[in-house]
């Protein structure tokens, strides 16, 4: 589904953030990108979602080379991803429903389909009763669940989450991770960058980054419960 071939990324005047990355992510996989701060986890996710372009090498997503993607094709590509950020990136002047509806508005979806899909997404993250509330009134965990609802509402084939549990309590973090697992189990590819692996018993691929290169690529690890 996603293939990195000799991918390097650097910014002018700074050392390479990612060096010679080769990896393959298959459809329906759960991938944890781990590593210390500055290891290049966020950069890797940005490359997948075409927020950044690689300095060299190529990234192939379903036969499309993202390193040569045209600017006007990027919005269309991003609609196929569900993205979740550490700081949620919610719109605080819109209620929960409107936040989740935004990707569907962008997709030019009909009002009836939009209503149905938004309610289903909110129900999935157990926020249906709070659809008219403003995000600022929600707890940190609820805000992250709302961000997940926004990411899944357009039924993307890939979910990309950048440290989604970094600012959450252990209880909330587990809740969020369980939501991701449930999507992976229905065939969605889930890529999560995190400092630490979850303790839940589940199959996943671990991509250990350190100093901009892959230190360890371990496939299908099943964690002890």
């Amino acid at each position: 589904m996603i293939t990195f071939e000799k991918v390097c990324k650097s910014y002018p005047g700074s050392p390479e953030i990612l060096q010679n990355i080769n990896l393959e992510i298959l459809s329906g996989e759960l991938v944890f990108v781990t590593g210390p701060s500055g290891a290049g986890k966020t950069t890797l996710l940005k490359l997948i979602s075409a927020i950044e372009k690689p300095s060299s090498g190529s990234i192939i997503f379903e036969s499309q080379n993202l390193s040569r993607i045209k600017d006007r094709e990027i919005p269309i590509l991003r609609r196929r991803f569900g993205m979740i950020f550490q700081d949620h990136k919610l719109l605080y002047d819109r209620n929960c429903f409107a936040n989740v509806a935004l990707p569907l508005e962008i997709n030019n979806m009909s009002l009836s389909d939009m209503n149905r899909r938004v309610r289903a997404a909110l129900d999935k993250v157990d926020l249906l009763k709070k659809e008219k509330m403003m995000p600022i009134t929600l707890s940190g965990g609820e805000q992250q669940r709302l961000a997940i609802a926004r990411a899944i509402v357009s039924r993307p084939s890939i979910l990309i989450a950048d440290e989604p549990t970094a600012n959450l309590d252990k209880e909330y973090a587990e809740e969020i991770m369980n939501i991701f697992y449930s999507f992976q189990q229905v065939g969605v590819t889930v890529i999560i960058s995190t400092h630490e692996l979850p303790s839940t018993k589940i199959n996943f691929k671990r991509l250990q980054l350190n100093g901009g290169s892959i230190q360890n690529l371990i496939g299908h690890v099943q964690l002890p419960s």
Binding site: I51, I76, L90, D93, L102
Partner: peptide, 15 residues
């Protein structure tokens, strides 16, 4: 912020 979020989730400049 709204522009940033919209761009991240696939909004075109025209939108």
């Amino acid at each position: 912020d709204e522009i940033e979020v919209s761009k991240l989730i696939g909004a075109t400049n025209a939108f």
